[in-house]
Amino acid sequence: MTAAPEAAPGAGPPAAAPSLLSINNIEVIYDEVILVLRGLSLEVPKGQIVALLGSNGAGKSTTLKAASGLLPSEQGEVTSGSISFAGEDITKMDAPERVKRGLSLCMEGRHVFPHLTVSDNLLAGGYTKAKEAGETLDFVYEFFPKLADMRARTAGFLSGGEQQMLAIGRALMSQPTLLMLDEPSLGLAPLLVEEIFATIAKLNADTGLTVLVIEQNARTALSVAHHGYIMEQGRIMLEDEADALADNPDVKEFYLGVGGDAGKRSYRDVKHYRRRKRWL
């Protein structure tokens, strides 16, 4: 990729990348009573990888479902706030229209079609770009050579890592400008996790693809991300550049498992101290 030109003396810092996805102070309720997201806001700049981190139940998957338009299928709805993509308000837009505009979600748990071949799984993901499916298939096979080698195999017989590659490849078949990934490391061995995230980083570096990834594996996610957010109980509690988050002592202690003296204190006490000191 071409290096960015240096700023002229006295010109100030370079302008920030424009946001491709903007989630603005949204609340999400399930079954008309269960409040999950509580005034959540985040920005995903064009051409960057953004990591959304947090524990189970923090609301990470709900955030992606809100952005992708899948909430109605689970009796959920955005009750306030707004979501915009490429400058267009998509808060009330249905999921297929969002796909056509360039959003693609790779859901947690892979969800491949087990009785179809690898090739047919990929083609199913490209239904909105059917005329260009052959070219896009070649693109996917370039980034996932293993899929090319097993294109005729039945997806249900693939390993977990191979199915995850297939699920990401299928999401790429719609030629997204924003790829959203829900826990891509779930259930995978460490070496496979490294391979998956290396491919995500390469996609971003080589094509400029914007990525929003939610993860519990904070160390790996922050190693490839440009910016990061940390969620707790439906709210963003902390955000910063990825390198700064990785160096933050609280993040190290609670999400990376290093630093601090957590062994001398209970988790409850440390968590209370952490919130009082930094996030409240």
Rank of each mutant, 00 (worst) to 15 (best):
M93P: 00
S22G: 12
T207Y: 05
R151V: 10
G126M: 07
D243Y: 06
E27L: 11
A124T: 13
D149W: 08
R170Q: 10
S104D: 02
Y141Q: 01
P184Q: 08
L256Y: 08
M107L: 14
A225W: 01
V251D: 02
K131C: 04
A11M: 05
K92V: 12
D182R: 01
D120W: 05
L35H: 14
E135W: 06
I90V: 15
Q164C: 00
N24K: 14
G12R: 02
L137W: 08
D240I: 08
E194A: 15
G109Y: 03
A171S: 15
L37G: 01
E135S: 15
L52P: 09
P249E: 08
E253G: 10
A8K: 12
Y255I: 06
E132H: 11
P176Q: 06
T91G: 07
M173C: 00
L179E: 02
A95R: 04
S159W: 09
G87V: 07
M237S: 13
P114N: 03
A225I: 00
V28S: 11
E239L: 09
N25W: 02
K92F: 11
R235D: 10
R219Q: 13
L42V: 07
G69Q: 07
L203K: 03
K131T: 06
L179Y: 05
E253S: 14
F157L: 14
A66K: 06
G54N: 04
L20E: 01
R153P: 02
L212N: 03
P190A: 01
E183W: 04
L116N: 04
L222I: 05
A171D: 04
K46C: 12
A189Y: 11
T207E: 07
M180R: 00
D89N: 12
V78F: 02
E253W: 07
P249N: 06
D149Q: 15
P249A: 08
V251N: 04
A262S: 15
L181Q: 00
A218D: 04
A246G: 00
E135C: 13
L203Q: 05
H226Y: 02
V270Y: 14
D247F: 05
A3F: 09
E135F: 10
V251E: 06
Q175F: 04
S266Y: 09
L20G: 00
L280K: 12
T91I: 01
G228C: 05
N56W: 11
L166N: 10
T91N: 09
G208N: 07
M237E: 15
E88N: 14
Y267N: 15
V140K: 04
E195K: 14
R278T: 14
L181P: 02
T177S: 15
F157Y: 13
L103C: 04
D138S: 15
T210F: 08
L52K: 05
P14M: 02
S61Q: 05
S22W: 13
P176D: 03
H115V: 08
D94M: 12
T220F: 07
T136W: 03
V44L: 01
H272I: 13
L245R: 05
S19R: 09
Y127A: 13
A8P: 12
L192F: 13
N25I: 12
A124M: 14
Y30A: 01
G263S: 11
Y255T: 00
A66G: 10
L71M: 04
M165P: 11
I23V: 15
H111D: 13
G12K: 03
L70W: 06
S266G: 15
L191H: 12
P184N: 02
V213L: 01
L172C: 07
I26W: 03
S159L: 06
T136G: 00
V211G: 03
A167M: 09
C106H: 09
V78G: 11
G81P: 02
